[in-house]
């Protein structure tokens, strides 16, 4: 499944990097601990989190993640968007909580 299909089905906001919407989604990872994501997420996964600062893009880039979804209506900080645009990794947004969003995405991808 592509990031843009996830965006459509979950009705996500696209904060940045429209050119990254054709990236392939190979799974998901839900965590707000950056070292956890650094250590255990896998290439091509969508990362679900409530962290909004720039360091999430460093992790997403270093781990080659497909996209980041911010939960509960959180919005990315300005320098997060700058990095997201330069790296081509979409930052997306949902009003759902991490539990609900993860459950829906899990069922979509399984």
């Amino acid at each position: 499944m592509l990031v843009k299909e996830v965006v459509e089905k979950l009705n996500l906001k696209v904060f940045s990097s429209k050119e990254g919407l054709d990236r392939e989604v190979k799974g998901g990872y839900t965590s707000d601990l950056l070292s956890d994501v650094m250590g255990y997420s896998k290439e091509g996964q969508i990362w679900i989190t409530l962290q909004t600062h720039k360091n999430i893009m460093a992790i997403a880039t270093l781990k080659d993640l497909a996209a980041v979804i911010l939960v509960k209506g959180f919005e990315p900080e300005a320098d997060t968007l700058e990095t997201a645009n330069s790296e081509g990794i979409p930052v997306l947004g949902s009003d759902l909580e991490a539990f609900e969003l993860s459950g829906i995405l899990f069922n979509m991808l399984k």
Binding site: D32, L33, L34, S35, D36, M38, G39, T49, Q51, N55
Partner: peptide, 15 residues
């Protein structure tokens, strides 16, 4: 609060 400092850094390096 930024999501760092979970006590996973050095173990992650070691692994």
């Amino acid at each position: 609060e930024m999501g760092f400092g979970a006590g996973m850094g050095l173990p992650n390096i070691s692994e």
